[in-house]
Amino acid sequence: MSEIIIVEGVVKKYGDRAAVNGLDLRVNEGEIFGFLGPNGAGKTTTVRVISTLTDYSEGSVSVGGHDILKDPKEAKKLMGVIQQHISLDTDLTVRENMMHHAMMHKIPKSERMRRINELADYVGLDEYMDKMINTLSGGWKKRAATVCSLLHKPKVLFLDEPTVGLDVQARRLLWDIIRKLNDNGTTIFLTSHYIEEVEALCDRVGIINDGKLIALGTPSELCNKLGSTAVEYYGADNKTEYKYFTSREEANEFASSLGDVKTVIIRNTNLEDCFVELTGKSVSGP
């Protein structure tokens, strides 16, 4: 499997503070890659650096074999970005926004309408095409932004916290769109702090903290590093504690040995456990 994004030793500093600090990352073509991290860990900065919006101080980044500094035009052709905030022109209708994006991407006139209609149909936006952006709900705006970012047929789609502010239905519909895009060959780079989102969608996950990649692997690989079974117990000191074990038997044995506790739950370890252990204890301290 070829690597479509290669990030090597990237450092991005704002003043004296390094938002990204020596990041090495490789994303395979065709995968859904999840990028997790607490607030301020460097997720958005990483996406901005790769997508050419923010310069970096050290290192190198290439997308589809094109160095983003030496050959930004070719790299940009391969990338689409759906940003955390809605980045659509509120004075234009949905269709006008899409047409504007298509022209900015130099899509020939003969293809513009066909592509817009196809993608609008793909995300179920057909009946909203002539509505003003401001009249749409957050979920529909996100879909409109999705179409805009896909018009030039990017090979990699970046989604920066795509479901922030969306209700459950809108979130699940967007997940389906992401899966469908990936099934059709688009590589997805997803940042989120919703762990269930990353768990539901991603083939591989990278965890960033303080600008550094601290874990990388499939969700199950990351969980197994902690131990496949978790014991969650709420003790007499009114504090929930977590312990991880390599087998259910060990977990049961530990749970039985607990004395005065109010609640005990034995369950499979999940990505949230891994995230908290890595970012909350091992790396950042308690």
Partner: peptide
């Protein structure tokens, strides 16, 4: 204001064209 400058900057078109 609108947050639309970034999508423009990510296209192969130059700001001066706009």
């Amino acid at each position: 204001y609108n947050g639309t400058i970034e999508p423009i900057m990510m296209t192969p078109s130059h700001m001066i064209d706009v």
